[in-house]
Design a protein around this nucleic acid. Structure first.
Length: 283
DNA sequence: AATACTGTTCGCGA
DNA sequence: CTCGCGAACAGTAT
């Protein structure tokens, strides 16, 4: 699932599979998945693969970039050389590749193929000049990278300048890049903070704990290759493992393994499923 | 069969 | 500015 650890896992594999290859042909089956004319990138070489929060950028040799957001169900799947071992395709790739949910196909030299599958069609790929992409897509409004630029001091400033519930603040992509629903829930449980607590009312110790907790869950997520609880798969067609290590996400009704006193509860905050331990995370 | 829920983000009206 | 809500879609679980 496309939060920072998932997108970073995709990025690493794409880097391995795609860099150095030429784009020979592009097929677009669903125009909304790739609005720009695909002929702009035919013959271009794939130079680098970057990640900004939950956004991927495939930088090409001709001043253009492919900017990609997979949203909830977008999948980038590679088939071709360097795919070793050629493991089983995850059954989470509904319809297969290519299949009824394959909206864009990139044919590379030497037989490599990159498929963009997306059941819900919320994800998108844009072809934009590299510089412009950094200015005008979501990348331009992206907040700080939690594992790079987000210092404890900056984090404190962000939290202390908002009256919104802390969970919404850490998920605000214009402030902090890449934290989504799963990792936000897990980090708040780890730091023993109620998701609804007003951000600026957090104490210094809570802020520090949350800062550490965010680092911890994101690193764990990356280490486990992301969470395949739902439809996330890696470009090699495999799955991540974080879903077996979630702290609280998806565990409504289970007894808290830290305090053993209460069961996890769930409510909706701004439309998103929000989990908490009534004992560990007091409002 | 019908309804609720799902990782994300944007735009609207209050 | 903030908030909640519906929309963009389609599949799965209950």
């Amino acid at each position: 699932m496309p939060e920072l650890p998932e997108v970073e896992s995709i990025r690493k594999q794409l880097e391995k599979f795609l860099v150095g290859h030429l784009i020979k042909k592009v097929e677009v089956n669903w125009r909304k998945s790739l609005p720009e004319r695909e002929d702009k990138i035919i013959g271009a070489k794939i130079e680098k693969v970057h990640r900004f929060g939950k956004i991927l950028e495939i930088e090409l040799s001709n001043k253009f970039s492919l900017v990609i957001h997979v949203k909830m169900t977008g999948q980038l799947i590679y088939r071709g050389p360097n795919l070793e071992p050629a493991g089983q395709l995850s059954r989470k790739i509904i319809g297969g590749v290519p299949g009824k949910h394959t909206h864009v196909v990139f044919y590379l030299d030497k037989g490599g193929i990159l498929y963009f599958n997306d059941v819900r069609k919320f994800g998108w790929i844009r072809i934009i000049e590299t510089e412009k992409a950094h200015r005008e897509t979501m990348i331009g409004k992206m907040g700080l990278e939690p594992l790079k630029d987000l210092t404890a001091e900056k984090f404190e400033n962000i939290l202390k300048s908002s009256k919104r519930p802390v969970k919404l603040v850490i998920m605000d992509q214009t402030k902090i890049a890449g934290v989504g629903n799963i990792y936000a829930n897990d980090a708040l449980w780890l730091a023993k903070i109620h998701p609804k607590k007003e951000s600026k009312k957090l104490g210094n110790e809570e802020i520090r704990d949350l800062y550490d907790a965010i680092h911890k869950v994101l690193k764990k997520g990356i280490e486990k290759g992301g969470s395949s609880e739902n439809s996330y798969v890696t470009p090699d067609g495999g799955e991540g493992e974080y879903q077996h290590f979630t702290l609280i996400y998806g565990k409504e009704g289970e007894v808290c393994e830290r305090c053993h006193l209460t069961k996890f509860e769930k409510f909706f905050l701004s439309g998103r499923g929000t989990y908490f331990c009534p004992n560990c995370q007091k409002y």
